Amino acid sequence: MGGPVPLLLAALAVGGLIALAWAAGFRGDAQLSDEAEALELAASLPGGFAGRDVRLSADRRHALITDAQGRIALILPHGAHFTARLCDGAAAEARGNQLVLHLGGRTFHIDGGEAADAWLNLLERSRPAEMRPHNAQGRA
C-alpha cells in the first residue's frame, strides 16, 4: 500500500481519537455549572464536608465553600474536571480582582471579581489568630 492512502488512514485514526476524547469530556476549560455542583464536589472530601456558604469565582473555575465548623474548601479545575481541597493554613492576598491563594506549596490565582476582598476576609477569618497577618487581625 503506497501513496496517500496510509497517510489518509492515519489522519482518520487520529481524528477518531480526538472525537472520542472530546465525547468523553476532555475538552476546553472546566466551569462549575452552579453552587450545587460545587457543594457536591466538596462533599467528596475525605472525612466529609457539609458545605453551607458557596462563593463561585467570576469565571466559574473556582469556588470557596464554608462549613458549620468554619472550615473552607477550595474547588479548583484539574484538567477538564474539578478537585476539592481543604484550605487549612492557606495564606491569601488580593491583587485587584485576583485572589492569590498559597496552599500546600502551590499558588492559585482566582478571579474573585468584585468580591475578591470578601473572599480574602473569609479565608483570613478561617485561619487561627496567630497565623493571620497583623494587618488582618483587626478585620477578622
Rank of each mutant, 00 (worst) to 15 (best):
M1I: 11
G2K: 14
G3L: 12
P4N: 15
L7N: 14
L8G: 08
L8P: 10
L9S: 02
A10K: 01
A11L: 09
A11H: 10
L12P: 14
V14N: 06
V14G: 05
G15V: 11
G15P: 06
L17P: 09
L17C: 15
L17E: 06
L20P: 07
L20F: 14
A21V: 08
W22F: 13
F26P: 02
R27L: 13
R27S: 13
R27W: 05
D29Q: 15
A30Q: 01
A30Y: 12
S33G: 10
A36M: 06
A38T: 07
L39Q: 11
E40H: 13
E40S: 13
L41F: 14
S44E: 03
G47S: 06
G47M: 03
G48F: 10
G51E: 00
R52M: 13
R52K: 13
D53G: 04
V54C: 01
L56R: 04
A58V: 14
H62A: 00
L64W: 04
L64D: 04
L64G: 01
I65W: 03
I65M: 12
T66S: 12
T66R: 04
T66C: 11
A68D: 11
A68C: 01
Q69P: 05
R71L: 13
I72M: 05
I72E: 00
I72F: 04
A73K: 00
L74M: 13
L74E: 12
L76Q: 14
L76A: 15
H78V: 08
G79T: 10
G79Y: 09
A80I: 02
H81W: 11
F82G: 07
F82A: 03
F82E: 01
T83R: 10
T83W: 07
T83N: 03
R85S: 11
R85H: 09
L86P: 08
D88I: 10
A91K: 12
A91R: 13
A91Q: 07
A92L: 02
E93W: 00
R95E: 06
N97P: 07
L99R: 00
L99Q: 00
V100C: 07
L101W: 01
L103I: 05
L103F: 03
G104V: 08
G105C: 15
G105K: 00
G105Y: 02
F108D: 07
F108A: 04
I110G: 03
D111W: 06
G113P: 11
G113R: 04
A116C: 03
A116N: 04
A116R: 03
D117F: 06
D117Y: 06
A118V: 08
L120W: 01
L120N: 02
L123F: 02
L123V: 07
E124V: 05
E124L: 01
R125F: 12
S126C: 05
P128Y: 05
A129C: 12
A129W: 10
M131S: 11
M131Y: 07
M131T: 00
R132Y: 07
R132T: 14
Q137P: 03
G138L: 05
G138Q: 01
